[in-house]
Design a protein around this nucleic acid. Structure first.
Lengths: 377, 377
DNA sequence: CTGAAAGCGCTTACAG
DNA sequence: CTGAAAGCGCTTACAG
């Protein structure tokens, strides 16, 4: 009962402040929120009482009364056990750098507006996914959804009640979407592989089948490769899940089945490429000598892999920052500043496609890396 | 005014449910919270109304009334511009894998208890750091603090009002701390470098000076190296900041000053080692041939670096999970299940210390990696 | 077992 | 400019 923390030592309320300042709670509230213009003396007395008591308003009470929580709910997909591999504590995939960096981008701009991020992971396919997202929504002023967490009907229903921005979806009548320019990015990559390196057989190792980004990357790569007269590989044998294990599994199966590998593999994202390179290395297959491997995203590890990963850079933190800003506009104005935002991507050539090693220091050591971003045949 | 979202289409309240079910709001609340045992018919009517309306209780109202927000505030340190380097959008350091993985570990166990994480970054040294953390506390039921965010006096004061668990501090009368076993981990690493590899000069590239973890690692390394008759280097020239830029800067300065480099450098954490290896590579210095480099943490990228990074593994996600569980015990019982938890660490030998390449597949592809964790001279 | 009412700690019209 | 009062949407004694 007598805990360490003095149970009587509960945080002060606005009533305590009012009493200490000899004023009403209304005056305290006004001073604290900068409403009207209180007399200088009133101001000072309030501020002094606040400082002495160490007062800060209770978030719940404030939210209930002001009808604003200053909280944005962020739902991230948690890999089901089936996807992540059996019995393995998949450290590697638990480190989803892409979503983590997006969240960081959101957080930075959220601070400026006085908002915080309420993070919740949801296991997709769970029958109560809808409920889990709804309850997250009721703890926040709006939602940012990573991945495809809800089916279109659920999304349509929920988005009529609460502002929602998606990060891996498509704009709808009631939701906004933020993404990178998949087609431009994949087009640049495809042309580099086919024209600059002359690869004739190129495969696409897919991400989630229900992901519009995945679809766009797939279609663009296919179009470019076939337009150039090359052979394009994709389909059931090439289905990954945006995670390293997914990429590794595809390669393992292919090799076990003694299938011929393509000259180049473009992966749905960097995490997948990481798994692919690892699986190839385990079989003694040289990258890029025998098989070239490329990713998408340019997560920070990409340049530290062996070989360094050629990829398409997305402005990851800006993706998050933009998603927050759009959501914020929906929360404050009732409608989004924009219904769809597409951020530019950029081809980053490193070793894994067959280009020479990158000699420049990593990007974080120089203002503008010189060796990156220009095609080197 | 007429936004896309029907402004009238506001989420249903418990009154709407009560009306639809022909019952009082008290009954609705009881059914929803499983209090007492309502009549079966009552239950059903409520549940049906809830489903039809898509009702979920407002988080703020629930929190205010129940005196429980089911939210845990997580404060992470944001690098100041000075630390992160001038004018650089430090992507690399913005991807702080260690804290992100800790948060993920917290999040997973938090879900089981119905809690969510409210994430806020705070710039340390900011004069209003205390206020920022206080206001975060008032939006949550308790706080988990990464890094040293508050000075002891601030911490003591705040922790009397709200449950706090630290992750890089020391236990106090009112707070609990969770950490890895720094001494055991560093001792194993030190002995490996000195005894197995026979290195005679070893430096410690420090993290934040105010970090107890940093201090313990420093002291242990120094004790082991000198006990073995080796030369130990540390001090002002070797001050990093737990980030890649910090490690790189130390190396750059040393080389610019034409200082002799030690045979081995043990870094305060992996992120620092990453910067060190990058700086050495840029100067054409071979790792581990000329200088051995080791880290601490074993973040997921460590095994993908070039050379693969030898390091001390901390159970990163368990660190987060444990911090949450302790905090939860403080929230529900008024006092912590334990005031200090020390989790075991484990030496992971890879290439950067001079050991042969790791041939086993990465940990996430096997249940228990065979080639790791045993000293190989 | 159920309902009417109080109360959680704020903000904000409404008077004065 | 300031205060008394209502109200935000719930939960929970308290009656019945």
């Amino acid at each position: 009962m007598a805990g360490i923390r003095d149970t009587a030592n509960t945080p002060p309320t606005i009533y305590d402040v009012a009493r200490a300042a000899g004023l009403s709670i209304a005056s305290v509230s006004r001073v604290l929120n900068g409403q009207r213009n209180p007399r200088e003396e009133t101001r000072e007395r309030v501020l002094q009482a606040v400082a002495e008591l160490g007062f800060a308003p209770d978030g719940a009470a404030r939210a209930l009364s002001a009808r604003l929580k200053e909280v944005v709910g962020v739902a991230v997909r948690r890999a089901s056990l089936v996807e992540a591999g059996e019995g393995v504590f998949a450290d590697e995939d638990e480190s989803l750098q892409f979503p983590d960096m997006i969240n960081r981008g959101m957080e930075v701009v959220a601070q400026r507006r006085g908002f915080d991020l309420l993070i919740r992971s949801v296991e997709v396919g769970d029958h109560d996914t809808g409920k889990r997202i709804l309850s997250l929504a009721r703890k926040s002023d709006g939602l940012i959804l990573h991945d495809r967490l809800l089916d279109p009907a659920q999304l349509a229903r929920l988005s009529r009640q609460v502002p929602i921005v998606t990060l891996a979806g498509v704009p709808t009548e009631t939701t906004a979407n933020v993404r990178g320019d998949n087609r431009a990015g994949m087009r640049d990559l495809a042309r580099h592989l086919v024209r600059d390196h002359g690869y004739r057989t190129v495969a696409y190792l897919a991400g989630h089948a229900d992901s519009p980004d995945n679809l766009a990357r797939h279609e663009t790569l296919e179009a470019e490769v076939t337009a150039a007269g090359g052979t394009f590989l994709a389909g059931p044998d090439w289905h990954g899940n945006y995670m390293a294990v997914g990429g590794a599994r595809v390669i393992d199966k292919l090799i076990d089945a003694r299938a011929a590998l393509p000259r180049a593999i473009a992966c749905a994202n960097d995490q997948t490429a990481l798994g692919v390179m690892s699986a190839l290395a385990a079989r003694g297959i040289d990258v890029p000598g025998q098989v070239a491997v490329c990713g998408f995203d340019d997560i920070p590890v990409a340049r530290h892999l062996r070989p360094q990963l050629t990829t398409v850079r997305q402005p990851i933190q800006e993706l998050g920052a933009t998603a927050f800003e759009i959501l914020h506009s929906m929360i404050s104005n009732g409608e989004p500043a924009s219904r769809e935002v597409v951020l530019p991507t950029r081809l980053i050539l490193r070793e894994s496609c067959g280009c020479p090693p990158e000699m420049a220091p990593p990007a974080w050591r120089t203002a503008e890396p010189v060796a990156e971003g220009r095609p080197r045949p």
